[in-house]
Nucleic acid binder design. Structure first.
Lengths: 117, 117
DNA sequence: TGCTATAGTATACAAAAAGATACTAAGGAG
DNA sequence: CTCCTTAGTATCTTTTTGTATACTATAGCA
């Protein structure tokens, strides 16, 4: 474990944000508040139950989200950001913003490539 | 491609930061300036040439870093952040900071778990 | 002549992540 | 009695990542 140069704790944040679906989940929960499993699933077309479950468990494990089970049939489970999880908000928004600009940047580049060929 | 809810451009930033080595490479280049291949490799014990090459190519592809080849033998290739790449700096630093706090957060949790068992 | 150095490529393989699909429990509706 | 619902598991296959290893060109040095 003591292998990386210690100037890089970025990975600790990355570990939480990575996984193709985690950012979508987190932004959704940040913006919409508490949501149940099926709502999350509906909001992310293409995700499988297995993946969604896995991502949620990992986020829960890290104290980023909270999971509340209602003992009902059919089951009801609600997810929400924890107080601590909200501390990720600035990063997520910075990335969102950068990502948006980056999409534009890429498009400009493509246009340049096209017109020079 | 038009599958994700468009409120999530976070992935575009994530795609660039992910890959186990990219953050380390980027922080190193941000802090130390221009570096050649062998210096990067030396700074990241454990990475294979193939991986380093791959990561560098991907970052170059996205305009984040620049690659300059000197026609010498033995070869000399230098890498540096582009102007554009530097726009990632605030995100990287935010993640670095959050990551550091998160490590502490986890440690506190472990102590709690220990003392309650 | 043979060895070293740099920045790679090529190939094979192992491990991890993601995806597809089928299955479950148990109450309510018809 | 059967089907629907929700929030999952379990199992298998595919894809993506990462690792290990060997190989390359060519100038300079001994």
């Amino acid at each position: 474990m003591e292998k990386k140069p210690d100037h890089c704790r970025v990975e600790d944040a990355l570990g939480i944000l990575v996984g193709k679906w985690k950012p979508v989940i987190l932004l959704y929960l940040l913006q919409e508040g508490t949501k149940r499993f099926s709502e999350l699933k509906r909001n992310m077309p293409g995700i499988t139950q297995k993946m969604l479950t896995k991502q949620l468990r990992e986020l829960e494990e890290e104290d980023i989200i909270e999971r509340v089970v209602y003992p009902q049939v059919p089951p009801k489970v609600e997810y929400s950001m924890t107080e601590y999880g909200r501390s990720l908000e600035p990063i997520l928004e910075a990335m969102h913003e950068w990502g948006t600009r980056h999409t534009e940047h890429k498009m400009k580049k493509q246009i340049q490539v096209k017109s020079s060929s």
